[in-house]
Each structure stands twice: as C-alpha cells, then as structure tokens.
Amino acid sequence: MSTTTVHHHHQSEGNYSKLTTDRVGLWLFLLSESMLFLGLLSARFYLAGTFRPPELNQALGVGITSILLVSSLTMFRSEVAIRHGDQSSFLRHLLITIVLSILFLGGVAYEWSQAFTHFSPNTVFGTIFFSMTGMHALHVLSGIFLMLLIYRNGRSGKYSEHNHWSVEATAKYWHMVDVVWVFFYAALYLV
C-alpha cells in the first residue's frame, strides 16, 4: 500500500479548505461541550431553585469573574497578534492569559476551602456548587494545558500569520470556558 497519496479535498462541493474543516469540527465540539454545562445549569435550578446561601463570598466571586473576563480579552489580543505575525505581542499576551487563568484557579481553590465549612457537598447547594465550579475548573485546567503547549511551541517559532490554527482553536476553547463561567457565576452568585 502506497503512503504517498493524491489529496483532492479542494475539489469538494463546498470548496472547504483543511482550515475550514477544522473550524467546523471545533465548533461542533464546543456545541457538544456546552450541553454538558447546560445540564449542570438545569440541575442547579431543578434541585435548589433560586436558593443562594448568604455565606457565598461575593467579593471573591466578582474578583475571579473579572480576572477570567480579562483573560479572554488578553487571549483575543494574543490571537490577533499572531494573525498579524507579531510574535512578541502574541507570546506576551498569551503569558498574561496563562497567569490570569492560574490566578482564577487559585481563587476557586480559596473559595472551595471557605465553602467547605459552610456548605459541604452533602448538602444540596454544596452538591451544586462543587459540581458546577469543579466541572468548570477541569475545563480551565485543560485550557491552561493547551495554552502552555502553544506557548512552548510559539517560543520555538512554530506559528506564523498564515499558520496558527492551534492558537485559534485554543482561543476559541478558552472563550467558551469563559462564556460558560458567565452563566455559572450568575446562576451561583447572583440569582
């Protein structure tokens, strides 16, 4: 069997390039992932209605939410930079995003240590709080892993203005994680 093959993707009906194909796949995956969060969000209202314990640390909630939103902005800046081939701005903004997301995780960890004493997972609000923030934190963690990966590759000059799909994909994933948090924050801290 020959390993050299003639690729004729460019002749397909939609004239889809490899990049567009990748984008379609990523969007479908993000759509699917958001269903998981939608399920958790529904469970929050199903089990506890709009109940919210007074012990929630509102200041911390606002703080980590702001950090995450700013990180989305810096991630966006980073992606724009590589799109224009600006390597140093790309790496700088990426690094800031990584630092911010680690700060966010630190904030969640601190909130967890506080929350344990007020509403542990064997109460219904604790169940909701820890599962929602926990599932989200897992996604933040995987996002940080991806960002570290592209940071490492970016430093060795792997990406350019015409070749930066990994950066774009990571950025889209990161924005999804942030949008999810906006809903989760509202559902846990504000309702």
Partner: peptide, 24 residues
C-alpha cells in the same frame, strides 16, 4: 453530538453521589 453529554452527566452525578459524598 447534542445528547450524549447528558448521559455523561448522569454518570458523573451518580459517581459523585456514590464515591464523593455528593447528594444529587
């Protein structure tokens, strides 16, 4: 694509209840 996430969620909830003391 849309619905499989919910079975994953059902299994996660079950496991959390059983092994981590959650109370879904």
């Amino acid at each position: 694509l849309i619905f499989t996430q919910f079975i994953a969620l059902a299994m996660i909830m079950s496991l959390l209840d059983r092994v981590a003391g959650f109370s879904f």
